[in-house]
């Protein structure tokens, strides 16, 4: 099966001279959930805006469902629903009207039954006659999603979907994304939270400075970069690391008050039980322990080191 989205040699330079995309090649399969992971300013929004048609293409080609987005833009765009990062709504329109408007603008016949189901799925049915201005921030975001889904797209773009979203909406959103995927929809989301990419996506593309650094199955990426760190706050500061603890390659932090141990979370034996036993034998007490995952920055550092 040909890829749902195929981007090749895509470059984009804004009028300001900013090079937003510097030669992107990317293929996204039908029915996958793809996370575009990268820091702010990496080019995530530029990339999806070009695919969706809200930003002009620089050079290169983009095909959506086999349709070139410049030559055959009608067919390409008809397949896509877009939820932009910012909430942008006609605040005077009612929920029902603004969602029905979106469907019409995409050239679809009115279908009140479909819109009713959509609004019910998004817990917006009770608010259908309310004006957007009366809704809370979370509700407005649901309206944005309803608008994007109003024309039954085969591809859904979610730009930073959970930025500033509360826990219940986040959970609803993930449930919705999964159910859409089960119906055959391809989903592309951008995020700068590694947890989000890990939880949701089948594959992750890491982007920085307008380049794709790698594309990998999410599980494989986590195995590669998912190192964790154990930090132990000591009862009594240590001046140096005892020789008996040298097999663990520990580090002393905060003037000897904290002992840090980086370990591979996916290894069969992560070495922690043995470390703690040995510390007990040596009489090194700790009052608190904590484990943390590699942050996105750590991953970038190691990626850049690898590619350099």
């Amino acid at each position: 099966m040909p890829p749902m989205i195929s981007v090749s040699a895509l470059r984009k330079t804004y009028k300001s001279g900013l090079v937003a995309l510097d030669g992107i090649d990317l293929e996204i399969e039908k029915q996958e959930i793809f996370a575009l992971l990268g820091p702010n300013g990496a080019g995530k929004t530029s990339l999806i805006s070009i695919i969706c048609g809200t930003v002009g293409i620089g050079s290169g080609t983009v095909r959506v469902g086999g349709h070139d987005i410049t030559q055959d833009y009608r067919a390409a765009r008809a397949m896509i629903g877009l939820v932009p990062q910012e909430i942008s709504l006609d605040i005077f329109a009612t929920v029902w009207n603004t969602v029905a408007f979106s469907r019409g603008v995409f050239g679809r016949r009115p279908d009140p039954d479909y819109i009713e189901r959509l609004l019910r799925d998004l817990s917006l049915w009770d608010k259908r006659d309310r004006r957007v201005i009366e809704l809370s921030g979370g509700m407005k975001r649901r309206v944005m999603i309803a608008k994007a889904l109003s024309h039954e797209p085969e591809i859904l773009f979610l730009d930073e979907p959970t930025a500033g979203v509360d826990v219940s909406l986040r959970r609803d959103m993930w449930a919705l994304v999964r159910s859409l995927r089960d119906k055959g929809v391809t989903i592309i989301l951008t995020t700068h939270y590694i947890e989000e990419a890990e939880e949701m996506s089948d594959r992750v593309g890491v982007i920085a400075n307008g380049r794709i650094l790698l594309v990998e199955q999410t599980a494989a990426l986590m195995r590669k970069f998912g190192r964790r760190k154990l930090t132990l706050a000591l009862q009594h500061p240590l001046a140096y690391i005892p020789v008996d603890l040298s097999p663990w390659e520990l580090e002393l932090e905060q003037q000897g008050q904290v002992l840090a141990y980086a370990f591979d979370a996916n290894a069969e034996d992560n070495g922690i039980p043995a470390l703690l036993r040995r510390m007990a034998e040596l009489g090194i007490d700790f009052r608190d322990l904590d484990t943390s995952r590699n942050s996105l920055e750590d991953i970038f550092v190691s990626l850049v080191e690898q590619t350099a």
């Binding site: 048609g53 833009y73 390409a76 877009l82 006609d90």
Partner: peptide, 11 residues
Amino acid sequence: TKTIYEILAAP
């Protein structure tokens, strides 16, 4: 209001 995104993304 930036709702123009929808018009620009539409076919």
